[in-house]
Design a protein around this nucleic acid. Structure first.
Lengths: 186, 186
DNA sequence: GCAGCCATGTAAGGGGTTACATGATTAT
DNA sequence: ATAATCATGTAACCCCTTACATGGCTGC
């Protein structure tokens, strides 16, 4: 269900094509939701049938097939109603943590290799967030409480992503140190 | 794919029924993976076909239908091979954060209600982890580096869960404070 | 001319959820 | 007796991924 509203949320910012929506996902929604092209195109078709989005006229000189979608008033109502709805607390669903739970079975060095790899991956993601943060900072926000409404959401989710990655990195360091101190004989 | 190995990992600790596996999920794996009964029973049947688990003899006096599964040597090999495999970095897939991204559309008080609700949910989960932590501490671990191998994994995942929840709570507090400071006129 | 990006789709299959269904054991 | 817990399953459906398929535009 979230994909539907994630798309409506992006279209509420500005009309876009399915391709652009997928790119928008990659640039801002990426770390808390992702979707493939195929899924987005299918969802857009369904949203259009429901009258929540519409294809804009004047699809544009040259490019054939290009379909620009915009949110409709009904779409905005549906989005706003959903926004003010409780969200269930879901499990993290981390394949990595499923592995960690059985790390006692792994030779110490192999467990360390997996932990270091995980740390590096999350470090890269944190750097990507820092880059987005730098771009946001350039848009001239001096006081946090003065953030314009359209940027409030992206600002908060970015802060959440950064806090999350920092917590993971700190945990990785603790876990690596702990495993390193263990007796090498497994 | 993770469910398969999550089950193998639990059966490597001790033989269990499908019902008990589901309960084990709830008691320790819960926050990073979850599964319904139906899915576990289906997966167990497939694992048995593949020879990775087997039904134990002597299903027990009285209770009909009770099927106790145990991991086989082939199952242990498959589990250990998977454990030493890289895990892809996946997005968080949080419905709540999809909502937060559009919080600029919501009246201030409604956004605050949603944030406080989220904080409370995560506070409860943190308390549940603290309870598990207390039980683990009672088993008499004095030195972290002396944790017996079978407890290493659960210890690390628990620490990860606690770190994650603390980061979320800190973010909630920041977000709530920020939104409270905004001009009430939306 | 070719690589890379823009742009949109169909089909098959896997993983997970929800609804439905059954029945034994244990505690009050 | 009755409720809660233990215990196992089938069927339909939804969401998502992977593989396959097509074609235009842009820069080197």
């Amino acid at each position: 269900m979230s994909l539907k509203y994630a798309i409506l949320g992006l279209l509420a910012d500005q009309p876009q094509t399915g391709y652009e929506i997928q790119k928008s996902f990659a640039g801002s929604v990426a770390y808390f939701w992702e979707a493939k092209f195929q899924q987005i195109y299918g969802e857009l078709r369904r949203l259009e049938e429901q009258g929540l989005v519409e294809r804009e006229a004047a699809p544009g000189r040259g490019r054939q097939q290009r379909k620009v979608y915009a949110i409709t008033p009904n779409g905005e109502r549906a989005l706003d109603a959903w926004l003010d709805t409780p969200s269930p607390l879901v499990p993290v669903r981390s394949e990595f943590l499923v592995k960690v739970r059985s790390f006692g079975r792994l030779p110490r060095e192999r467990a360390l290799a997996r932990l270091r790899e995980h740390r590096r991956q999350n470090e890269e993601r944190l750097e990507a967030y820092r880059a987005i943060q730098a771009r946001l900072a350039e848009s001239g926000i001096t006081d946090e409480s003065e953030i314009p409404a359209p940027l409030l959401g992206p600002y908060l989710t970015l802060a959440s992503g950064i806090a999350y990655e920092q917590a993971i990195l700190a945990w990785c360091d603790r876990a690596i140190a702990l495993v390193e101190r263990r007796a090498p004989a497994d």
